[in-house]
């Protein structure tokens, strides 16, 4: 092997590099098609004129906005209500749980107190139970205080766990030099001031990451929304609502509207995501990797 390689003429090496580049481009193009086609299919379906759930043609025969209009005016499946329900829940959850995660992470990263280690161990253990194992009990707890079938309950359930998901954020705070805190302390700053005036301004990426994650959770959650809302259609979020929309009996009539709904939800999130991709990557890699 070794001898063969070193005795090759230079032009051969160039040809080989050319071949391997071509192969790499070919692989990337094939993979991109695999990843893009399902998304394109949804977008095409959303604008399709022909009725029905599936069509033999990938590219629609005619383009129309009617599916979107029907979707937003749908009274059987009130998508408009669901969309704004989810938006409200997502914004509130985002604010509340970002605040909780940031503060807990600051405390665990910067302050030393007796309860610190036990708390972190407890969070580790709690994180290992399947999250929705306790859903029925959560339902009864909320029922006991008369809060089921309300969006507030949903916000509380989503945000309550924020105090456990501090690993990534704490990992980020750990990387901010402690010398900054010490300097501020010498100038007479309290811990509250250090948190708000020293640490927060340096934590742009992690604030974006945390809030993005918190904002996206309600759009995808299925279990708690279903358990809490039961049969109250008007309090549904998009996830459970749209799942019902394409149940077996409805799929023929509503599949195009479902696709239109996917586009309505997907595009804002994708745009937001692409804009913040760099911050997102920083957040993930900061937490997933041991330093």
């Amino acid at each position: 092997m070794t001898g063969k390689k070193s005795s090759r003429p230079i032009s051969g090496a160039r040809a080989r590099r050319y071949a391997s580049d071509t192969a790499a481009y070919a692989a990337l193009i094939i993979l991109s098609v695999i990843w893009i086609v399902p998304i394109l299919w949804v977008v095409f379906t959303a604008f399709r004129v022909e009725p029905g759930s599936f069509s033999a043609d990938f590219i629609p025969k005619g383009v129309t906005f009617q599916n979107f209009i029907d979707l937003w005016n749908n009274t059987v499946y009130p998508f408009k209500t669901w969309f704004f329900n989810t938006l409200i829940v997502a914004v509130c959850t985002c604010l509340l749980s970002t605040l909780l995660t940031l503060t807990i992470s600051y405390v665990l990263s910067r302050m030393r107190f007796k309860f610190r280690k036990p708390y972190m161990n407890m969070a580790l253990i709690l994180g290992m139970f399947p999250g929705f194992m306790s859903m029925i009990a959560v339902y009864y707890v909320l029922k006991a205080v008369g809060m089921t079938q309300s969006l507030t309950a949903l916000v509380l359930v989503y945000s309550a766990g924020a105090g456990i998901n501090f690993y990534i954020c704490k990992g980020f705070f750990d990387t901010i030099p402690r010398a900054l805190d010490e300097a501020a302390k010498l100038d007479g700053a309290t811990n509250a001031q250090i948190f708000s005036k020293v640490i927060m301004p340096l934590s742009g990426p992690i604030i974006v990451y945390t809030s993005l994650m918190a904002f996206m959770a309600p759009w995808g959650d299925f279990i708690f929304a279903k358990i809490l809302m039961g049969d109250n259609y008007y309090k549904y979020t998009v996830a459970i609502g749209m799942f019902q929309m394409i149940a077996k009996d409805n799929i023929y009539a509503y599949f195009r509207q479902f696709a239109a709904g996917c586009v309505c939800i997907g595009i804002p999130i994708i745009v937001m995501f692409i804009l913040m991709q760099r911050l997102y990557v920083e957040g993930v890699t900061g937490g997933a990797v041991k330093s």
Partner: peptide
């Protein structure tokens, strides 16, 4: 807001965890 800042910051989270995670669990 200073020496015991951790008490202030941890209390809401701990109440949330107690009510919606530990008690149901």
């Amino acid at each position: 807001t200073d020496q015991k800042f951790h008490v202030t910051l941890m209390t809401p989270s701990i109440i949330g965890i107690l009510l919606f995670t530990i008690l149901p669990l």
